[in-house]
Amino acid sequence: MLWPYNTPGIPDNLFEQLPGIPLSKREVRLLLISSLRMKPDSVLWDIGAGTGTIPVEIGLLCPQGKIIAVERDEEVANLIKRNCNLFDVNNIQVIEGSAPDCLQKLAPLPDRICLEGGKPIKDIILQAWEYLQPGGRIVATASNLESLYTISEGLAQLQARNIEVVQSAVNRLETRGIHQVFAAVNPMFILSGEKL
Rank of each mutant, 00 (worst) to 15 (best):
N186D: 03
L2D: 08
L158N: 02
I125Q: 11
K39R: 15
L115T: 11
S143V: 15
N83A: 04
E130N: 09
P8D: 05
F87M: 07
N13I: 11
A184Q: 14
A99E: 10
I163R: 12
V166T: 15
M38G: 04
N83S: 05
N171Q: 14
T141Q: 12
R176D: 08
Q127A: 11
D123F: 03
E16W: 05
A142V: 14
P120N: 15
N186C: 01
A156N: 04
L109P: 03
A160T: 12
L196W: 04
Q127T: 15
P11E: 04
V139F: 00
D46F: 06
Q93Y: 08
D101T: 09
E71F: 04
L36A: 01
Q17R: 15
E130F: 07
I125N: 07
P19E: 15
R72P: 13
E74H: 10
S192R: 01
P4S: 13
I151P: 02
Q159W: 01
I21M: 06
T51R: 14
Q17W: 05
L44C: 08
D41A: 14
A69E: 09
N90K: 15
D111G: 07
E16A: 08
D101A: 11
P100N: 08
W45F: 00
V170S: 01
R112V: 05
E74D: 12
N186K: 04
G193P: 02
L14T: 13
I33L: 06
